[in-house]
């Protein structure tokens, strides 16, 4: 029987793909953190209805939600060098386009995309925090920043966690598009490996297994985090800690 599907190859390819997992993880982690921070900023702009910024952010969010992530990556990859050229022209500088690592274009596009989607989740979570606690914090003499950091965010985080967990999984899978900006992560590597031995299906199978395993890991991590943030669980731990102190 001819060796039409080489099952063994699927598993021997996995370690070769895993060498590029750090790139996938780097893209995921940085874009998520940047997306959360910028998303928080957008959410506050929307809640406080800050003039000018509010309109700009509304257009930005609409644009990001109205265009495919693939197109956004194209725009970033092709557009940033143009901006740099204009900058060089008007400021008589000579920054080199090639000195920008290609991973930057991917991070930019993914972060902005993530920020736009997260901002709505974050806004809803922030607004779900009950007014009474906020009033109590203000009545103690806390500034808005202190109330936000110490009271609103910890509570909103718990509300937003399951949705943000899904966003993280979506983002991790979304990094597979990075190859259009010539960044080699696990998807690009699987295509390179397949091109060498023309075993495309085996290569893609290994790739799929890695994404699947990663997704399950993230799901488990989020579930664990949710459990640790549960009040009854926290209370039990604190009371146990108290016993040790005594």
């Amino acid at each position: 029987m001819p060796n039409i599907f080489d099952l063994e190859l699927v598993f021997t390819l996995i370690p070769k793909l895993l060498k590029y997992l750090p790139v996938t993880l780097e893209l995921t982690v940085i874009a998520m953190l940047a997306g959360l921070l910028l998303g928080l900023l957008l959410a506050i702009i929307k809640m406080k209805r800050i003039p000018v910024l509010y309109q700009i952010s509304a257009v930005f969010i609409s644009f990001v939600r109205g265009t495919p992530i693939l197109v956004q990556l194209y725009l970033s990859y092709a557009g940033i060098p143009l901006i740099l050229k204009y900058y060089n022209y008007y400021h008589e500088t000579s920054y080199n386009v090639n000195s920008i690592p290609s991973i930057f274009y991917v991070l930019l596009a993914l972060s902005l995309n993530e920020a736009a989607y997260n901002s709505e989740v974050i806004r809803a979570a922030l607004q779900s925090v009950d007014k009474g606690q906020i009033e109590a914090a203000h009545s103690l003499g806390m500034t808005y920043g202190q109330v936000l950091r110490r009271i609103i965010l910890p509570e909103a985080f718990i509300v937003a966690l399951p949705t943000l967990g899904n966003a993280l999984i979506g983002l991790m899978k979304g990094t597979s598009l990075a190859f259009v900006c010539s960044v080699v992560e696990i998807t690009a590597q699987s295509r390179i490996l397949a091109g060498n031995n023309l075993r495309f299906f085996e290569s893609y199978c290994s790739l799929a297994l890695i994404y699947w395993a990663m997704t399950i890991l993230i799901e488990q991590a989020i579930a664990l985090l949710e459990k640790r943030l549960d009040i009854d669980f926290k209370s039990l731990r604190k009371r146990k800690g108290d016993v040790i102190l005594d």
Partner: peptide
Amino acid sequence: VLELRKSTAMVFQQFNLFRQKT
């Protein structure tokens, strides 16, 4: 505003405790 709030303290009808804190 901050100075006035620092010199006063309020007890609320609905308690308004911070839920994520002991």
